[in-house]
């Protein structure tokens, strides 16, 4: 594993834990898109089915189990425990417009027409757009709590670092996976606008708010 991949995985973990911690501490999931969190739970579930079929390393297995557990815990907090604080009216992105085309694409473009491989491909495609309901919610309300922006930054950083990881792996290992690379590029691009706001506003101590 190279340094980019290592930092990326921990940035991803940090994002997940920041979100869980924020919801737990404030006893509220205001401003958080439950739909994005359900999509991430689906992403992890469909991607990590290989937990049942193959063992890669203790690190790999532990991280996969932690990601899955945390994402289900987050969904539970939003839709069950702190449901009263969930801002469903603003979480109005139509997820079927993501899931259906992504499902179709996974069936059409994959490395191998086998169930596990198609589900893995589906999870890669779905992850690249799973944050859209959250970004849509922020654009609708015009603002985000600072802690939510830290969450988004860690999540975006994770994907950006994976791009460096793939460049590294291509040069030093001759490894590349076109499906992951293209989806990773799309995913990173979706965060660019947010990165700009994060650097120009949040890092200067201002709240992230969008012009009306």
């Amino acid at each position: 594993m190279n340094i980019f991949r290592g930092i990326a995985d921990f940035s991803h973990l940090a994002a997940i834990i920041i979100l869980l911690h924020k919801i737990w501490k404030s006893r509220s999931c205001a401003g958080i898109s439950g739909k994005s969190q359900i999509l991430f739970a689906i992403v992890f579930t469909t991607r990590y089915l290989d937990l049942l079929t193959s063992f890669i390393s203790l690190y790999n297995t532990s991280m996969k189990v932690i990601y899955i557990s945390c994402s289900y815990a987050t969904v539970y907090l939003i839709y069950m425990k702190f449901r009263a604080t969930y801002d469903g009216n603003h979480d109005s992105f139509r997820v079927e417009f993501l899931v259906v085309p992504v499902g179709g694409l996974a069936v059409l473009i994959n490395h191998d027409f086998a169930l596990l491989e198609i589900l893995w491909t589906f999870s890669i495609y779905l992850e690249s757009v799973a944050i859209l309901p959250q970004l849509f919610m922020i654009s609708k309300t015009g603002e985000a709590e600072t802690i939510t922006t830290h969450y988004l930054f860690c999540l975006g950083l994770y994907r950006a670092l994976y791009l460096f990881n793939w460049i590294w792996r291509f040069y030093f290992e001759g490894f590349f996976d076109m499906i992951a690379i293209v989806a990773g590029l799309v995913q990173t691009v979706l965060y660019c606008d947010f990165f700009y706001l994060y650097v120009t506003k949040v890092l200067k101590g201002k709240k992230l708010s969008l012009p009306a």
Partner: peptide, 10 residues
């Protein structure tokens, strides 16, 4: 080299 049925990346 791709398409292994355990994916080493997360």
């Amino acid at each position: 080299e791709f398409n292994i049925y355990g994916h080493d990346e997360l």
